[in-house]
């Protein structure tokens, strides 16, 4: 790791003032620190966001869920309040990385990195979540802009994630057995108006995406069988040493069925 300077602000404003083109926000650090150790990133300054109260805490009021950006995967996975209204989401958080990684990694850090194999983006797209930052609010659709790319400006930081709990939600992923990242993960949710959201992680060469075909099929019949005749177009899907685009296309269908099966 190249030399860097560590900062520990206690407010969002203080953190934003420290930000610059060469600096990086440090949340749980479970991606950033390994990247720095490989010298693939060399920020001049690290701005630790773990000690800012405004970024912490989970609130669930009725069906409205608000998760502070600095909440860890472990806090989300074990939140009885979220589990009560959106169990698919807590299941997803409880299957990121491993227990030690979940104790440190945060939802804000994960979505700001927008790794194509990260889990949360699929859920936030499917749920139609809102991403709050220190300067504005963005729909998940507008926030995730591509591979490791988001709409965040240089000094901007995610402060919270908000969504309305659906009637049913489920997540299923096929993990790479070595990295534990999703080779394909599918989040499904059914809302009270009957509409359905389907988000796909780990498969798109442009990052997570929604699947309108699967959403339409499930809107009429929210059962695994409804996806039986769906065929997913492999163009636009990743092909790498782990799986071909065709294999991932099939995984989307299989994980989609399992997610529907598990949805509660």
């Amino acid at each position: 790791m190249y030399a860097t300077t560590y900062h520990r602000p206690t407010s969002v404003d203080e953190a934003a003032k420290l930000a610059s083109e060469e600096a990086k926000y440090l949340s749980g650090g479970q991606t950033l620190l390994p990247t720095m150790k490989q010298r693939l990133a060399a920020p001049s300054d690290l701005i630790d966001l773990r000690h800012i109260d405004a970024l912490k805490g989970i609130t669930v009021e009725g069906g409205n869920v608000r998760i502070g950006a600095a909440c860890t995967h472990s806090e989300i996975a074990t939140s009885e309040a979220i589990k009560g209204v959106c169990p698919g989401f807590t299941y997803l958080a409880g299957h990121i990385g491993d227990p030690a990684v979940r104790h440190m990694g945060t939802i804000g850090g994960s979505i700001a990195n927008n790794d194509p194999a990260a889990d949360y983006p699929s859920a936030l797209l499917a749920l139609g979540a809102t991403i709050r930052t220190n300067t504005r609010s963005l729909a998940a659709e507008d926030f995730f802009t591509g591979l490791f790319e988001t709409a965040l400006d240089e000094r901007e930081m995610v402060t919270a994630v908000e969504f309305t709990a659906p009637d049913k939600s489920g997540y299923s992923k096929f993990r790479n057995p070595a990295s534990r990242y999703a080779m394909t993960g599918v989040f499904v949710c059914k809302r009270s108006d009957g509409s359905v959201g389907v988000g796909v992680a780990g498969a798109g060469s442009d990052g997570a995406f929604r699947s309108p075909d699967m959403e339409r099929a499930l809107a009429g019949d929210f059962t695994p069988a409804a996806l039986e005749n769906i065929s997913i177009d492999p163009s636009g899907l990743m092909s790498d040493m782990h799986a071909s685009a065709e294999y991932r296309a099939n995984l989307i269908k299989v994980m989609g069925k399992r997610a529907v099966q598990q949805a509660v």
Partner: peptide
């Protein structure tokens, strides 16, 4: 809480 001490700075 259990954490990986190779993936945390001493300063953190």
């Amino acid at each position: 809480k259990a954490v990986k001490s190779c993936t945390m700075l001493a300063a953190q």
